[in-house]
Simulated scan of single mutants.
Amino acid sequence: MTGQTFGYIRVSTLDQNTVRQLDGEHLDRVFMDRASGKDQNRPQLEAMIDFARDGDTVLVHSMDRLARNLDDLRAIVRRLTEKKVQVRFVKENLTFTGDETAMATFLLSVMGAFAEFERALIRERQREGITLAKKAGVYKGRGKALNAGQAADLVRRAATGEAKAALAREFGVSRQTVYQYLQPEPQ
């Protein structure tokens, strides 16, 4: 008896197209995250790993869709193959079963290292772009979460003892943002 075939799709932004990743593949179920591949903290990735059973196959468009970090890539593939789940990368035409040859292990490492390198280049270019935009006076950073009236109201209400979590929910900000507004202004 063969197991089920699952697709794992990951995109970093809401406007990225997910269709091309596993188009034309027969899948019993798809798990999709809209999150960065920089770490393993992805709800659908965890759900897929928990759901997968002996004999199942996980299809991923390419290694960089599963992880952008070599250690994470190895760890995810290992977690799945230890459960006797095959992991197949469509673009690279590689399948991992847990019974890897030295060449398969080498290819996973090299291809994973390229994905990690690519992410580092993206971050480097982003930092360079921000630096240039700041010099040109174009980049102002992220705007304030609250206007002056909202900020004053938040500070006043927090001073009366209202719960910070409740204030965060009401103002539509994180608790960390609430605490930042409660910090005294630097002199």
Rank of each mutant, 00 (worst) to 15 (best):
A163T: 11
E128F: 04
R123C: 05
L27R: 08
S174Q: 10
E124G: 05
T81M: 15
D28H: 15
F51Y: 11
P43N: 05
L121E: 09
N147M: 04
Q44H: 09
V77Y: 02
M111W: 03
R169F: 12
R142S: 10
K84S: 14
A104P: 00
L121F: 04
G149C: 13
L132M: 11
Q21Y: 12
A115Y: 00
G161S: 14
L80S: 01
A52T: 04
L94D: 00
T18I: 15
F31Q: 06
R78M: 10
E25G: 01
A104D: 13
A145N: 06
V178C: 07
R74L: 03
K164E: 06
G129R: 01
L154T: 08
R20V: 12
A67T: 02
E46I: 03
V110T: 14
G143H: 07
Y179P: 00
A159E: 14
Q150S: 03
D64G: 11
A145T: 00
V19A: 15
G3Y: 00
A145V: 04
R119T: 04
R119N: 08
Q4E: 11
D56W: 03
P43S: 13
T5N: 06
N41V: 02
E116Y: 10
A102P: 04
F89K: 01
R79V: 05
R79Y: 11
Y179C: 01
L70C: 06
R156D: 10
Q180L: 08
E92T: 15
L27Y: 12
R88C: 11
R79C: 07
L132D: 05
G55W: 09
G161A: 12
A52M: 02
T81E: 12
L108N: 05
G24L: 14
V77F: 03
Q187E: 15
R142V: 02
V90W: 07
R10P: 04
V87F: 00
E82M: 13
R156E: 14
S36Q: 06
K91Y: 12
V110E: 09
V178Q: 01
N17C: 07
R157V: 12
K134G: 06
D71F: 03
L132Q: 13
Q187W: 09
D39K: 02
R79S: 02
T18Y: 00
D56Q: 02
E170V: 05
R157E: 08
T95Y: 11
D50I: 09
R156W: 01
K135V: 02
M48H: 07
Y181M: 09
E82S: 07
D153S: 13
H26G: 06
A67N: 04
K91P: 01
Q183T: 03
L14Y: 02
Q40W: 01
L59Y: 03
T13G: 09
N69T: 03
D64P: 08
G3T: 11
R169I: 02
R169D: 14
D64K: 03
V58Y: 00
Q16A: 06
G137Y: 10
V173K: 05
A168V: 10
R68N: 04
A102K: 02
G7E: 09
D50G: 13
Q126D: 05
Q4D: 12
T131Y: 09
F6T: 10
A133V: 13
T95S: 13
R68Q: 07
E82A: 11
F96K: 05
Y181K: 04
L167D: 00
K84P: 00
Q4A: 14
E124R: 08
